[in-house]
Amino acid sequence: MAASAHGSVWGPLRLGIPGLCCRRPPLGLYARMRRLPGPEVSGRSVAAASGPGAWGTDHYCLELLRKRDYEGYLCSLLLPAESRSSVFALRAFNVELAQVKDSVSEKTIGLMRMQFWKKTVEDIYCDNPPHQPVAIELWKAVKRHNLTKRWLMKIVDEREKNLDDKAYRNIKELENYAENTQSSLLYLTLEILGIKDLHADHAASHIGKAQGIVTCLRATPYHGSRRKVFLPMDICMLHGVSQEDFLRRNQDKNVRDVIYDIASQAHLHLKHARSFHKTVPVKAFPAFLQTVSLEDFLKKIQRVDFDIFHPSLQQKNTLLPLYLYIQSWRKTY
């Protein structure tokens, strides 16, 4: 089996927390979720979201995140109150960019949308954001926290390059993509939290790379249903696996070995980020709550012996909000 052949990389499970039942964490995340308004986002309300009498641009960002990046939404709820709305805006910006690729039928249209967001970032730093909910909220975040323009532009530029429907040539190319998107998002989150620390940035770099790799793995069944495969070609070739094997949902050992190798790289990034947690300011830990969902996925895929098409991998963990709150309460990542 794939797991038994390579099992030495995987460390002990961390979500089991001995003695936790003896201490009762304060009510927090679930209460916040219940208090949030929840009407559906419609095209009509989106168009009017920044106008008078609408929910408001902040509510639009929150709803977009809740629907399109639920794990990011849950993590954002546990940030300090003064930072929450800015991170909602930042993550909503990322969602807007991420959904361009799947929402257009022609690359030219995707490039036009990316050009809109490039100009939007430029206009935000000229205090002239367009009348668009996410743009307005992002402008507020930039003004409030003096966010670095370079990180925002890196996210747009990398998403634009990724409009080509090509597999990553190697794991390094996937890591570079993750660094310029997910890690950049974390650098900006640290700025919102008021953290300027080399060790925190180092952790953000590795956690962002782990996030990018896990996202690529999780999306494999969806991409396969659209006749697309984006997994690193070098690892596929190493194990003699073709793109057609993934399109046919082949579950042979060599296919699972490909998934094992890729998942192991995410695991190593996560492990390395945690190896120097004592040197990272505690104030930075809330920015890294996504490690909970990353670890949850890596454990699940290990349990199914790296069968990327196993139905259990597509099921939401209903206990994730609780695990996130516990992680926040324990002040760790």
Results as ranks from 00 to 15, higher is better:
222 Y>D: 05
148 T>D: 05
115 Q>Y: 06
112 M>V: 12
65 L>T: 09
191 E>V: 00
227 R>S: 08
115 Q>A: 13
210 A>V: 04
114 M>V: 11
167 A>G: 15
264 S>I: 08
141 A>Y: 00
324 L>I: 13
97 L>E: 00
274 R>N: 01
193 L>A: 03
311 P>I: 07
232 P>R: 00
296 D>R: 07
102 D>G: 09
213 I>R: 00
131 H>S: 15
202 H>M: 05
179 E>N: 04
286 P>V: 09
68 R>K: 15
168 Y>E: 02
261 D>V: 05
118 K>T: 05
110 G>S: 14
293 S>Q: 12
299 K>Y: 10
169 R>N: 10
255 V>H: 09
77 L>P: 02
150 R>P: 06
290 Q>S: 09
140 K>D: 01
277 H>S: 12
146 N>T: 13
135 A>E: 00
181 T>A: 12
211 Q>K: 11
158 E>P: 02
69 D>A: 01
309 F>P: 00
283 K>R: 11
294 L>V: 10
189 T>E: 06
274 R>P: 01
143 K>V: 11
325 Y>K: 10
163 L>K: 04
72 G>D: 06
278 K>A: 13
203 A>G: 02
90 L>H: 00
109 I>C: 07
284 A>C: 10
229 V>T: 13
304 V>I: 08
167 A>R: 05
286 P>A: 12
325 Y>N: 05
133 P>V: 07
141 A>Q: 00
247 L>Y: 04
68 R>M: 14
282 V>Q: 09
45 S>H: 15
142 V>L: 06
135 A>V: 04
286 P>I: 09
60 Y>G: 05
59 H>I: 10
318 T>L: 13
52 P>W: 13
65 L>W: 02
94 N>Q: 07
224 G>D: 06
147 L>F: 05
297 F>N: 06
296 D>H: 08
309 F>A: 04
162 N>K: 08
285 F>C: 13
216 C>I: 14
127 D>R: 06
315 Q>H: 09
152 L>V: 12
60 Y>V: 10
294 L>D: 04
200 A>R: 01
232 P>D: 01
285 F>D: 02
79 L>W: 14
197 D>Q: 09
131 H>T: 15
157 D>L: 11
59 H>K: 11
203 A>Q: 00
93 F>M: 06
167 A>L: 14
277 H>W: 11
281 P>F: 00
83 S>G: 14
228 K>S: 12
140 K>A: 03
82 E>Q: 15
318 T>H: 14
160 E>D: 10
156 V>E: 00
305 D>W: 00
219 A>S: 15
195 I>H: 03
123 D>Y: 05
87 V>Y: 12
277 H>K: 11
228 K>F: 13
49 A>T: 12
249 R>C: 15
119 K>T: 10
78 L>C: 14
323 Y>T: 14
250 N>V: 14
317 N>R: 11
232 P>A: 02
259 I>T: 09
147 L>G: 02
148 T>F: 01
312 S>E: 13
279 T>H: 10
224 G>R: 13
229 V>K: 03
275 S>I: 06
179 E>W: 00
47 A>Q: 09
103 S>D: 15
297 F>I: 05
248 R>W: 06
312 S>L: 11
96 E>N: 08
185 L>F: 07
65 L>F: 06
200 A>M: 01
66 R>W: 07
231 L>M: 11
279 T>I: 13
111 L>S: 15
316 K>G: 09
94 N>I: 03
139 W>A: 09
65 L>K: 02
284 A>P: 00
76 S>P: 04
269 H>D: 03
208 G>E: 01
244 E>K: 03
96 E>G: 05
104 V>H: 13
143 K>H: 12
255 V>F: 12
165 D>L: 14
113 R>F: 04
296 D>W: 09
238 L>D: 13
231 L>W: 02
84 R>C: 06
180 N>T: 06
145 H>W: 08
279 T>Y: 09
158 E>C: 11
323 Y>D: 14
156 V>N: 00
233 M>D: 04
323 Y>A: 14
281 P>K: 02
190 L>G: 01
69 D>F: 00
204 A>I: 00
71 E>Y: 07
86 S>L: 02
263 A>H: 04
165 D>H: 10
155 I>M: 10
274 R>S: 03
122 E>A: 15
283 K>G: 13
297 F>Y: 13
171 I>S: 05
326 I>R: 09
96 E>P: 00
219 A>Y: 04
175 E>D: 06
56 G>D: 08
109 I>D: 07
326 I>A: 14
330 R>V: 08
293 S>D: 12
287 A>Q: 01
129 P>H: 06
143 K>Y: 06
215 T>R: 05
294 L>H: 04
112 M>D: 08
197 D>C: 06
55 W>E: 13
204 A>P: 01
194 G>V: 00
248 R>K: 09
130 P>N: 08
156 V>P: 01
146 N>V: 07
207 I>P: 00
73 Y>H: 04
159 R>E: 04
151 W>D: 02
127 D>A: 07
109 I>W: 07
264 S>M: 08
184 S>Q: 12
245 D>K: 07
112 M>H: 14
274 R>K: 06
141 A>S: 10
